[in-house]
Amino acid sequence: MKFKNDNPVVLALPRGGVPVAFEVAQALNAPLDVVLVRKIGAPGHQELGLGAVVDGPKPQVVMNDEIVRAIEPGAGYLKAETSRQLAEIERRRRLYRDSEPPVDIAGRTVIVIDDGIATGGTMRAVLKALSRAGARRLVLAVPVAPTETLVSLKAEADDIICLMTPESFFAVGMHYRDFNQISDREVVELLRRAKGNGGRA
């Protein structure tokens, strides 16, 4: 199986990416962890990403300079919104990991998984942050995404695996039979099961 002999780490974007990543980690006998990231939304249009905050020993803020220049949200807004998202990251860190440290990715093959990608802004921030954190090889793996988004992410990942690239995309949830929201409790349980199943650290 591809990547199994690379001693990979599987990182999921919670919450939706965790069930997908759990299955991949089990198949590869690899450790599963989450990469905590929060979008910095535009004023009045939270779905429009100005950038994202990615957790780590030193949390990284990756901005989309083109959108920031177009929207001109102001330094005060960016500072306040970044602080708000950092607080949510801290909440999730305590909930998902308790006191456990994150899996060390330095020098490792890192497989980054979500349940799908639409515009790719948040994923781009994650890949940039993981590269800065010392990942040796970055593999982006998702079930579904538009072709143009995957093309735009090629510069950030060493490999991209995507099962479906529908011409009519619209939204990730349209390509699932069941797209009910995953709860924090389910995330915690899957991470617990993955740890109990003994993926290689």
Rank of each mutant, 00 (worst) to 15 (best):
K4I: 14
D6H: 10
N7R: 14
L11F: 02
A12P: 02
A12I: 03
A12Q: 04
R15G: 06
R15M: 05
F22V: 11
F22M: 07
E23R: 15
A25F: 07
A27V: 07
A27K: 15
A27P: 02
A30M: 07
V34P: 01
V34C: 15
V35G: 02
V35P: 01
R38H: 09
K39W: 11
I40T: 03
I40D: 01
G41D: 12
A42R: 04
P43L: 05
G44E: 10
H45V: 13
E47C: 04
E47D: 14
E47S: 12
G49W: 08
G51K: 06
G51Y: 04
V53P: 00
D55G: 01
D55W: 01
D55I: 01
G56E: 03
K58C: 08
K58R: 13
P59E: 04
Q60A: 15
V62M: 04
V62H: 09
M63F: 12
N64E: 14
E66Y: 10
I67Y: 03
I71P: 01
E72R: 15
A75F: 02
G76Q: 11
G76L: 11
K79W: 06
S83T: 12
S83K: 15
R84G: 13
E88L: 14
E88H: 05
E90C: 02
R92L: 11
R94H: 12
R94S: 11
S99K: 15
S99H: 15
D104W: 04
D104C: 09
D104E: 12
I105Q: 00
I105P: 01
R108G: 02
T109L: 10
D114P: 06
D115Y: 04
D115C: 04
A118F: 11
A118M: 13
G120C: 09
G121W: 05
G121V: 06
T122L: 02
T122S: 08
A125R: 01
A125F: 05
L127S: 06
G134D: 13
R137L: 04
V139S: 13
L140W: 12
P143W: 12
A145S: 15
P146T: 13
T147A: 15
T147D: 08
T149I: 11
L150T: 11
V151K: 09
L153N: 10
K154V: 04
A155Y: 06
D158Q: 10
I160F: 07
C162A: 15
C162L: 07
T165W: 04
A171V: 12
G173C: 08
D178P: 03
D178L: 04
D178R: 09
D178H: 09
I182F: 06
I182H: 02
D184G: 11
E186S: 07
L190Q: 08
L190S: 08
L191T: 00
R193F: 06
R193M: 13
A194M: 09
A194G: 13
K195N: 10
K195M: 02
N197E: 14
N197M: 14
G198Y: 01
G199N: 03
G199W: 03
R200A: 06
R200C: 02
R200K: 12
A201L: 10
